[in-house]
Design a protein around this nucleic acid. Sequence first.
DNA 1: AGATTCCATGCGCATCCTGATCGTCGAGGA
DNA 2: TCCTCGACGATCAGGATGCGCATGGAATCT
Lengths: 225, 225
Amino acid sequence: MRILIVEDEPTLGRQLKSTLEQNGYAVDLSTDGEDGHFMGSTEEYDAVVLDLGLPEIDGLTVLGMWRKEGRRFPVLVLTARDSWSDKVAGLDAGADDYLAKPFQTEELIARLRALIRRSTGNSSAELIAGDVRLDTRSGRVTLAGEPVKLTAQEYKLLSYLLHHKGKVVSRTELIEHIYDQDFDRDSNTIEVFVTRIRKKLGPDVITTIRGLGYSLNDPAQVARG
Amino acid sequence: MRILIVEDEPTLGRQLKSTLEQNGYAVDLSTDGEDGHFMGSTEEYDAVVLDLGLPEIDGLTVLGMWRKEGRRFPVLVLTARDSWSDKVAGLDAGADDYLAKPFQTEELIARLRALIRRSTGNSSAELIAGDVRLDTRSGRVTLAGEPVKLTAQEYKLLSYLLHHKGKVVSRTELIEHIYDQDFDRDSNTIEVFVTRIRKKLGPDVITTIRGLGYSLNDPAQVARG
DNA sequence: AGATTCCATGCGCATCCTGATCGTCGAGGA
DNA sequence: TCCTCGACGATCAGGATGCGCATGGAATCT
């Protein structure tokens, strides 16, 4: 999952980026409204954290522009405490959730998780496909009840596929959502990690759709068909 | 474990801080309601000691604000003796326990211990992981029955991990809960103390989860897997 | 003075990326 | 139906990187 942070205060911004990365997200950081807007318009994000008090362009304006352009990623807005007017205006502009500054990082992460979960149409914090279970809160993966050790990249890849269970996910899409901005797009890392995951979780978890990409099927459905 | 004291009377405040520190807590001290509220909102505390008779903002108001913002740390309220009305109002505002002034520091510590124990979901005053036992009352640690001498920081680190057994705890989280406000966050002290604890208690007590942090596993559970 | 805590440095290993090679699938022709 | 060939995907090994560990000495506290 890839996230954009638009936050003008450098210290807070960097701290957030680091925290989110520790929680298994790919993170881009933008420090002003104009750049932030550009990033959100050109790159593929699964969620955006947007501070309202920005230089150059106001956060609400940026949000409005995105929605006008048809960007649908969930947006978590950071507001000053007790700022009622901001809250109302933000709702109108298309924000999905709020967090008043100052906030606890734990709460930010919990809310982001919930946003992404909702936006991908998953109802539970635990993602399941056959014998494979991934708990998005603890970051633990189990195979038939047994805990499995995954590396950071393996986890990101599996997590994205699980969030989009049943859908065919192209290599490009995976690269866009697993890595942050500066990454060489011409490489076969995705294949490498698919191989690794298959070794750890069994060869049937991820299905290859030749020429299109990968798909993660719930064996229950396959058995039916 | 890190604690915030909000107490306007400087003598009592400093005395409390020192007592709690001697008992293995990291302590921040705030002398008025406004600052106290800010601290509680921005930093990570495992418990708060809150005096109701404060200048600027009243203690109860501060407590109400925290709860509205979603802060869940347990709060121990200090009231004047026989102040029934305070007690009722405090309960409504979300206090977890009471202590009437004047009080014995021993009782304060005992109650704090109980509060933290409950809030972290531990039922006993003795925390156990494999051969390692930590008695939160006496502050003693034993390995397979044999007493082990830990330094202050070693104890704090181990105690926090034991309170959150099974959870993956990031380096940042550890720093936030082991040290008080003014501490340089860029250093490798956590690693150093982890090394030290491993030397005293054995290499398998603390598990490293690369890129994420540390985790303390109950061998009983590992044995199952 | 002694213990404790903190910081800086160098080392080792897990992880990740790259590039090469091998395997597999499927279309088209005989 | 079978074979051939081209394109795509899978796998493997080597090397770079960064993270965590260990250690000694400086700074700090008791």
